[in-house]
Design a protein around this nucleic acid. Structure first.
Lengths: 211, 211
DNA sequence: TAGATTGTTAATCGATTAACAATC
DNA sequence: TAGATTGTTAATCGATTAACAATC
């Protein structure tokens, strides 16, 4: 019944995890689950689960718990997994190639419609049945197709420059794999930084801490 | 001077970011920086920076600030960036191939010494001058080389099975790209989950929220 | 109805921010 | 010395956990 206005990022970041676990439960033909049971499986407290879910609505039923399939569906809706946000990818090098061919953008709410690079050796090649275009065609393409999200698989310097162009062209969200810390410059635009180096350094610290 | 015993994960996760920004400053030949100035550049509060750094020691000087090169060096030491933790990678598919060839493990404190797969088409190929081995040779290899970290680039089911084997073989940290939520089962072992799907779903929510 | 479990309010805990005395 | 800026303690804020009345 409740519907909070501003939901904290901590809550939002837990949603995909709920979604994954509920997907598994659904696959195992489990029909209902209580917050207590789910908390055991996921390593959280039952309180937290109920608090989190109640940010978006009362999905449970007293005395019964939550219907797995329904809750799965609801969280999917909240996350917008059924949408098809038009998405482009910049940088068809190793990482870009892997992401564009391996990542199932569709099942997460995205529709990859364009891939761009500056390297003439890559332009014209096909990835995931999309022909890699010259990055100079970006303006033209965006005006015609109006993509809303861009995945950046390019070096820091290139990312800084291209981000600005893309924001002007109407991009509203970035999936950023460059070392450039996007979140700082563009308030009001959603940025998910995937800093693999930071992740490795954190692991380094923690492994040494544990030895 | 202070040296806290248990440093919170929030602090640790900020260290790589400090390291990156200080690296940039150093490259720009900036010799000293105050917490106030750094806070402006990084989008944090000066208080937080001082608190974070003081978990590890008093690296600054009153009235002066922090010596950029020294602080960079210190954080590098804290993170263990100069170490060479023996590391293996499981799964030489698309993602594994990209990581093993593109990721500069060395500059983050790791030394990639082995790559494994089950696919006979991949076994015997060379990635980053490492010959991909049959995963059945894992036990033999680990007993001889004692790697301490494993990077998992395999599907969920394979990851669950292999993680158990690896823990028994002395692996103390995982860089996990599978959909399997490792952190749950293995307390005392450092796990960095890189859930790209979760990251995309979070982006989906946030883009819709912003539109 | 009795039992179970939610939704929600209140209490606790931890992390961030502010303030300021210490000191370079 | 005076000015700047740290290291550190205290205050605030937000997130997590506990408790329990509502209700299926």
């Amino acid at each position: 019944m409740s519907k909070k206005e501003n939901i904290s990022l901590s809550v939002i970041r837990r949603l995909p995890r709920y979604y994954r676990f509920l997907g598994e439960l659904k696959k195992s033909n489990i029909l209902r689950i209580s917050s207590a049971e789910l908390s055991r499986i996921m390593g959280l407290t039952a309180s937290q689960i109920r608090q989190d879910l109640n940010c978006f609505g009362g999905f449970g039923q007293q005395g019964y718990g939550y219907n797995v399939a329904d809750l799965y569906e609801e969280i999917g809706k909240i996350l917008g997994i059924k949408e098809n946000i038009k998405t482009i990818l910049i940088g068809a090098g190793n990482l870009g190639k892997t992401l564009s061919t391996q990542m199932d953008f569709h099942s997460f709410g995205f529709d990859l419609i364009g891939i761009f690079d500056i390297d003439s050796n890559l332009i014209g090649t096909t990835l995931n049945s999309i022909v890699v275009k010259d990055v100079s065609l970006l303006e033209e393409f965006c005006k015609k197709e109006s993509p809303k999200v861009a995945c950046l698989c390019i070096p820091k310097e290139a990312a800084e420059e291209i981000a600005e162009r893309l924001v002007k062209l109407g991009i509203r969200g970035f999936w950023n794999f460059s070392h450039y810390d996007m979140s700082l410059e563009y308030k009001g635009i959603a940025v998910e930084n995937v800093h693999l180096g930071d992740s490795l350094m954190t692991l380094s610290y923690r492994v040494h801490d544990n030895l």
